[in-house]
Design a protein around this nucleic acid. Structure first.
Lengths: 186, 186, 186, 186
DNA sequence: CATGAATGAGACTTCATTCAT
DNA sequence: GATGAATGAAGTCTCATTCAT
């Protein structure tokens, strides 16, 4: 009973780990099974196909990283400005993890672009995040919070992308955070 | 003689087209050969392996898109501020093409991360671009042009990434350009 | 106790249904279990293997269709000629069912040809039937009843086979019955 | 050039041999490749899938056996009655081969029944054969040649089926031929 | 130079069967 | 008795790569 949930969970986590490390096509069901400690057949007992497993793993990954209790941290802030700082600081601190997830999302996009569902659900989680940023920027009192929230998030994504592609930022992360903060909050 | 160069070129372009449309593993040598109008064996006559071909195609793609005569356009500008606008406008106008290339880069990263060479050469092209942006921002007189140039480029990359992943920006592109311009040039 | 017999019977009937509809290799234990309303393990509780189950189902099917109270019907006939008609009419009226069973027999033949037992027992049932036909033809007074009984049965089998393979006979069934009757009884 | 046709032919013949000996699901692509003397990949170079190969092999088999130069033999006959004898003699002489082919046809039926094409083309060949029998019976001057031709063919099919299922006829083949001849030609 | 037939490693997936609960 | 999670052997099919012509 509890076992069942556990095995499925184990497979899902193993899949997430592997798919964030390598590309979808490079990772084999065998690899995942081995890492999860189950047999190849076991994977198919819980998931219909490799693709379905990857999709589920992707959603899990996005939820784990993006839905990371940022709400609590924002609640603990005294001023709106502080909130902005928390958002920037938070996003860029887990930049390596973020970049791996981004790679995975990007990879899966190729396999899911013609279907509706998977990317949609990720988009929804993403939009939730944008909304929080927008509200926060509004509270700070900046002009055009709608546009600015998207630009701020794009900024962070772009930096993550640079890390992903080049493995380094060449600039001190803390200076970057500060500069971004100044740019948006003035 | 000229023929030779042509065939190789044809294969390279066909590969670039296909690899920007689908993922590396999805595209087959057969597909590329067919699109290039040569035989499967022909591809291996000019390239050692699929991976080598993909790398060459990637570099070609990056050069074609990033090294796109921006220099000339910048030369035509009268004020530094105008140059910044050209940079922003240019990058975001070809956003669909950019996003496809980004996907390809991302895809190849998985296959090349453990080796030195390919990603390095792309990085170099990228750094060239950053340098131009930095110089331009300096001329405008903003503070911390080094940091700001990276942030501006990250901003643009992040927007491209959103297009790539979600197929839409939900915001008018021109308003975005203007807002970004204001943000960085004030 | 009674339950036990019931479960086994349920499985057997479910198996017969499925094996007459699709081929042995296409039908899975899961399918049978589902149709019988038991678990996969349940099937193996009553039968050693898929093949053994199929054999038992085959014999059941043959008995159900061939041993179908033809004796009673023959007993009700007043003349030997009437008996011949009953045999022909009976066999060809259930032609669709017969053809499904024939397909199953044929299918199983591949899996059992190298072993003695299953096909033997079916053959025995078959020989019983031939004997009845032979006796009946003797009573009618035809020449060579031994040969003719086999030819008559072959005739019917051949028509069933045509139905099986081509799904239609292209000829009115009643005319056929009458013609066959005339041919053998004159 | 000639090679190409040869290899495809070799595979087709190997497939026909194996599929007439065992069931579709039991025969593996590996088996066929081995018997044809090519690699597994070679099979897929010429045929899209196992099923497609089996269909092609089936049609080949039917053509080879059914379209067997019966026309020439019939042309050589002096009287219509002689023709009938040739038909009966011919069909029942190759009864073992016929029964193997029948098993294959039957087997494939399961996999092709929901699609149009394969069984249709076999049916056409079959109908051709019926037509010849009908014409011959007409020439002999029997009543209802349309019905009788179908019954005669059914007779032969039924005997083939008995051979297939029980491996023996229990009756001398020549007596059978004679009896059938008498039955239809009188 | 060019072709495309041939190879074979390796991927995904199915499914009969076992067994702990 | 009954369940269904787990196994793993085996099958189909793909595709980069080679090589004779």
């Amino acid at each position: 009973m509890v076992e069942k949930r556990d095995t499925k969970e184990k497979i899902l986590r193993a899949a997430l780990e592997m798919f964030t490390e390598s590309s979808y096509s490079t990772v084999t069901i065998d690899d995942i099974a081995k890492r999860a400690g189950v047999s190849k057949g076991g994977v198919f007992h819980y998931f219909d196909s490799k693709l379905q497993l990857a999709k589920k793993a992707l959603v899990l990954g996005v939820k784990m990283l993006w839905a990371k209790n940022i709400d609590e941290q924002l609640d603990g802030c005294k001023t709106p400005a502080e909130k902005v700082w928390v958002i920037i600081d938070n996003s860029l601190s887990g930049i390596i993890e973020q970049s791996k997830l981004m790679r995975f999302i990007n990879d899966m996009y190729t396999y899911c672009k013609d279907e509706s569902g998977t990317m949609e659900s990720i988009k929804n989680i993403w939009e939730e995040h944008i909304k929080i940023v927008k509200t926060t920027l509004s509270e700070v009192g900046v002009s055009n919070p709608g546009l600015k929230s998207r630009i701020l998030c794009a900024c962070i994504d772009g930096l993550i992308y640079q890390i992903l592609t080049f493995q380094e930022l060449k600039i001190n992360l803390d200076s970057l955070k500060k500069e971004i903060y100044d740019l948006f909050v003035k």
